[in-house]
Amino acid sequence: MTETAIHIAGFRKEYPAARRKEMRLAVNNLDLDVPAGGLFGFLGPNGAGKTTTIKMLLGFIPATLGDASLFGVPVEDPAARRAVGYLPEQPYFHKFLTAQEVVAAHVGFAGAHGRAAKEQTEALLRRVGAYDYRTLRLSKCSKGMVQRVGLATALAGDPKLLIMDEPSSGLDPIGRKELRALLQELKDEGKTLFISSHLLSEMESLCDRVAVLHQGELVACGTPGEITRGDDEIAVLLDGLDETESLAREIATLGGSLARQPETRGIRLVAPAAALYRVMGLLEQRKARVISVSQRHETLEDAFLRLVGSTGH
């Protein structure tokens, strides 16, 4: 049986609203199980309740209702965080300290000391590419450099579970590529990665499972293949059709639709990919002029927008 890394049952969080008498609901009735091993994407628009959920998981704020555990240990118990590494969206550290001092402190929190702590600190700094500026004060480091230090602190103590909030925030394209490689490496090592992110195209290629949160509620959970619409679609651009009503009826019986495009004066036909030959037969009968035919598969980003609405509100 697969071990559960994160178990959330009935999480609810209410905050006092601007008017103190009212309460604002940040998370409502959230049930979630994250299996150990693999990368779990925690998605949602701004204000969906992702960070609030992470804060409750790490014991920063108490849940109004519900409970959660990390590898079976209730989150209220600090011991639950022994197996956890956390990278906040914008990691802030004491700016008067050097990268080495910060990472060494976190290695110490994870239980290492003496020579072993020194070796682990150096290994972590090398792993995230921060070794060259280890003696530089963080006040003199760029956002991307601090992000790498944050990553090193999250990895201190070789945690089984990594909770990351927008880990590629502040990284340049090279840094993002290196991060993807590191995440893949960590996944291959058997670690559980719980990542909250907006970069859905990146997440799609890395995630084993995703959960979509919207207005504090879970709207979808599963593998990216389960979340996106499984059937591919074809889109056909047509020209030279005067009468479209009967064609539209027949296309609708195949599960597709027809729409005039005022900007090109053409017609756009969308239908399931499986009905391609039947659609082509219908078009041939009507002597329609086909301008283009394309096949498309719903991406995670398309699914996300479908689930939360294009505005996210």
């Binding site: 790490l58 014991g59 920063f60 600090p78 011991a79 965080r81 022994r82 956890v84 590494g85 956390y86 906040p88 914008q90 990691p91 802030y92 550290f93 004491h94 976190h106 929190f109 994870a110 944050g150 602190t153 999250a154 201190a156 103590g157 909770i163």
Partner: peptide
């Protein structure tokens, strides 16, 4: 305020 408390309390530190 500076959020430096988060990385520390995310470890097994009471």
């Amino acid at each position: 305020e500076q959020k430096t408390v988060y990385p520390v309390l995310a470890k097994a530190v009471t």
